[in-house]
Write a protein that binds this DNA or RNA. Sequence first.
DNA 1: GTAAATTAATTAAACGATTGATTAACTTTG
DNA 2: CAAAGTTAATCAATCGTTTAATTAATTTAC
Lengths: 208, 208
Amino acid sequence: MSSTEIAYEKKEHIMDIAEKLFAEYGYEAVSTRKLAADAQVNIAMISYYFGSKEDLYLAVIERRILSLRTATHIIDDKHMTHLDKLLHLVDMIVDRFFENRLFHQIMYREMGMSNRSKIFNFMMDKWLLNFNVLKHIIEDGIQKKVFKKVDAGFTILTIIGTPRMYVQSDQMAQKIMNLKSLDEVYMLDMKNRLKNHLKELISNHLSK
Amino acid sequence: MSSTEIAYEKKEHIMDIAEKLFAEYGYEAVSTRKLAADAQVNIAMISYYFGSKEDLYLAVIERRILSLRTATHIIDDKHMTHLDKLLHLVDMIVDRFFENRLFHQIMYREMGMSNRSKIFNFMMDKWLLNFNVLKHIIEDGIQKKVFKKVDAGFTILTIIGTPRMYVQSDQMAQKIMNLKSLDEVYMLDMKNRLKNHLKELISNHLSK
DNA sequence: GTAAATTAATTAAACGATTGATTAACTTTG
DNA sequence: CAAAGTTAATCAATCGTTTAATTAATTTAC
């Protein structure tokens, strides 16, 4: 293994620990010393690899953002009904929330604050793209009279807000769902229950 | 006006400013100096009135929590159908989110973090009471066969998660709803749209 | 191939700035 | 005058960041 690979792994390791801590305690509450201690590296390594604490924070966010693709291609799929497209997107959205829960916890906390940096707007734009895919399908379905005349904006907030509520307040979710441990919250069974709930909800909401 | 009244108003004023700042930036990101400057009081007044920054934080939260009543009485109302009870609760919940949006922003951010203090569990218990009112009505309705066999837990997350999404990420909501200013997000018209959306959604979801 | 030179990685210690909190002196109030 | 309220100045602790010295790894030179 070359040294550049080791360095890469070490960078990734620091980002992993940072992501966990930022998600759990919030950016300001995590000191560089606590971060270095948890990652078992010297404090100076943060500056050495990332420049500053804020740059590390941005790197953590950017790493996940770049992996998120917008599902615009679904809009143009001729073989799917409007409802099928929507239900397929629900699957994707729930999967993403479960896969990147730490990132979502960070991002949505950030979204509730005043613009901290340039990356805030970058995130916002990225997500609006996703929202607009949903919005386009719903509004097109309404116009083509395959959907009821629902409030498209709030319908999107329901589709996103439900898994967000579940993941971001997982301790609360655990109690509501009568789960014994926090780990159970993120098990496949619960993910499927969430998907089924959302799909039935949306189907009943939109179908004439 | 007596001096105790002036002191009371000054305390309330500090708490108002603190609530706004904590909601906007988060607890750690707000320094006592920034707080004192915004409230136009001396830094020492925070210790003088509240003891410490954390005690001020707890006081801000406690002030709102104490004003929240649990709507347990609705369960026992004989003159309302199960659906009526639920829709009435939806009204109450949305009203609360709009009335105490700063508090909700603080509380739900707190809920996403690791237990910061005793008040965390106090908040959690308080909210579980509200959730259980919803859960009781839904499960009772299912058992009495006036409701479809839905997933009660996730249905609650939808009812709470939708207004939460709207209020906690108001800048995002503004863009999704095509509103010109952030103030429009909190106007009566939007609140009613949200209520109507949730009521129709829940009605279709639960009605046989 | 190996020793020297160069670069990268890592460390403990220290930097100035800012943090929450307190002090002691002063002013206002009843 | 006693109590409550208010102030500027200061406290030690912690913050993010940087330094200078050292070790490890890689490249170069022969």
